[in-house]
C-alpha cells in the first residue's frame, strides 16, 4: 500500500449546520474531543491547530478546502511526538451529507506513506471521538471518557 488511509462513516440524527458547529466550535469540541479546542479563521489557507487543555498544540496545519456545512479538508501534522511530526502532513476530510432525518458524516484521514505512525495512532482515537460526537448531538451527552485529555498523553 503506497499510502495509509482510514475511513469512518457514521449517521447522526441532526442537521448539517448543527454537525458543522459541533465539529468546529470550542463549546462542542471540548465535550467530545478530549477537552480540546481548534484555533482557526475557517477560510481557505487559514492556519489551523488543535489546542490541548494546557494550551499547547496537539496537531496543526491549514485549511485546504472549506464549504460549510458540506465539506472541510485540512492539512494535519502531529506536534506531540517527533517520529510523527517527521512524517509531515496528513490530509483530513470531513464530508457531511443529509440522509433522511440524519446526516452521513464521512471522515477520511490519509497520508501518502505506507504504515504511517500517525494514521495508525489516530485510528484508535477516531471511533471513540466520533461515537461521542454522535451521542452528544443525539442525546445531549457525550461519552465520559472523551470529556478530558487522556492521562499520560
Amino acid at each position: 500500500m503506497a499510502k495509509s488511509e482510514f475511513v469512518y462513516v457514521t449517521f447522526i440524527r441532526t442537521t448539517p449546520e448543527k454537525l458543522w458547529r459541533a465539529l468546529t466550535k470550542p463549546e462542542f469540541t471540548r465535550q467530545f474531543w478530549h477537552d480540546t479546542t481548534q484555533e482557526c479563521d475557517w477560510k481557505p489557507g487559514a492556519r489551523w491547530r488543535i489546542v490541548k487543555p494546557d494550551g499547547s498544540t496537539a496537531d496543526s496545519g491549514e485549511i485546504v478546502e472549506i464549504d460549510p456545512p458540506k465539506k472541510l479538508v485540512l492539512k494535519w501534522q502531529n506536534q506531540m511526538l517527533p517520529e510523527m511530526t517527521a512524517e509531515g502532513f496528513s490530509l483530513l476530510t470531513y464530508q457531511l451529507e443529509p440522509k433522511g432525518d440524519s446526516v452521513k458524516l464521512t471522515v477520511t484521514h490519509q497520508m501518502d506513506k505506507s504504515d504511517s505512525k500517525l494514521i495508525n495512532a489516530v485510528s484508535g482515537g477516531w471511533p471513540m471521538i466520533l461515537s461521542s460526537l454522535k451521542s452528544l448531538l443525539e442525546t445531549g451527552e457525550s461519552i465520559e471518557a472523551t470529556r478530558s485529555w487522556p492521562k499520560g498523553m
Binding site: E5, F6, V7, Y8, V9, T10, T106, T108, S131
Partner: peptide, 16 residues
C-alpha cells in the same frame, strides 16, 4: 464505506 475516486469505486473497512 464506498468512496468514489474519479471513476474508481474504492471500498474501505468502516470500524464505527
Amino acid at each position: 464505506a464506498a468512496i468514489w475516486r474519479g471513476r474508481e469505486k474504492l471500498h474501505y473497512l468502516n470500524p464505527m
